[in-house]
């Protein structure tokens, strides 16, 4: 994509791209990876702790506890989003806070808050999936493909 675009450019533009690239401060990739590793891990530890509380202290069966844990993490993320903390965490932690389920909840909650001024129907309802929508669409498509492959290549299933 980038190369294709570059080919369309005039020599002056190409020369400028090189000059501009030189002045572009690089993203601190290694530091970002380390931060993402620890923040992402920490979020998972919190999730695990909540699940342990549900199974051990409240004696909820493991399947139900997993669902309850996800719901709790989503709730925590929405609260942190609405009090303006999650975006700051995102700037610092990068993928660490974007990848877990809390990041998904943040993308929906932030869009809902953002478009509240346009009303509940067209604003909150219509715009809530602005960022999350593509995750759901392509997640579903990927799931169908994986399920189809599973059906084709799993002898236990295809054999009946």
């Amino acid at each position: 994509m980038a190369n294709k675009q570059l080919k369309k450019m005039t020599p002056v533009q190409q020369e400028y791209q090189a000059l501009a690239k030189k002045h572009e401060p690089p993203r601190p990739l290694l530091l970002n990876c380390i931060k993402a590793f620890f923040v992402g891990g920490l979020i998972c530890i919190v999730g695990q702790a909540i699940q342990d509380i549900y199974t051990k202290s409240l004696k909820i069966p493991i399947n139900n506890a997993a669902t309850a844990t996800v719901a709790t993490m989503i709730l925590l993320s929405v609260i942190l989003t609405s009090i303006g903390i999650y975006d700051k965490l995102g700037q610092w932690a990068g993928a660490g806070s974007a990848v877990p389920v809390t990041g998904f909840a943040n993308s929906m909650a932030s869009a809902a808050i953002e478009h509240r001024s346009e009303g509940f129907v067209l604003g909150v309802g219509g715009q809530m999936f602005k960022l999350a929508g593509s995750v759901i669409v392509f997640g579903t498509v990927a799931a169908i493909i994986v399920a189809a492959l599973h059906l084709l290549f799993n002898p236990n299933l295809s054999g009946g």
């Binding site: 572009e24 401060p25 690089p26 993203r27 970002n32 989003t81 609405s82 303006g84 999650y86 975006d87 700051k88 965490l89 995102g90 700037q91 932690a93 990068g94 993928a95 806070s97 974007a98 990041g103 943040n106 993308s107 909650a109 932030s110 869009a111 808050i113 953002e114 478009h115 602005k130 960022l131």
Partner: peptide, 12 residues
């Protein structure tokens, strides 16, 4: 993006 969305902005 929405202002509360937790995406990371590059140094540029």
């Amino acid at each position: 993006y929405p202002t509360e969305y937790g995406s990371q902005k590059p140094p540029t």
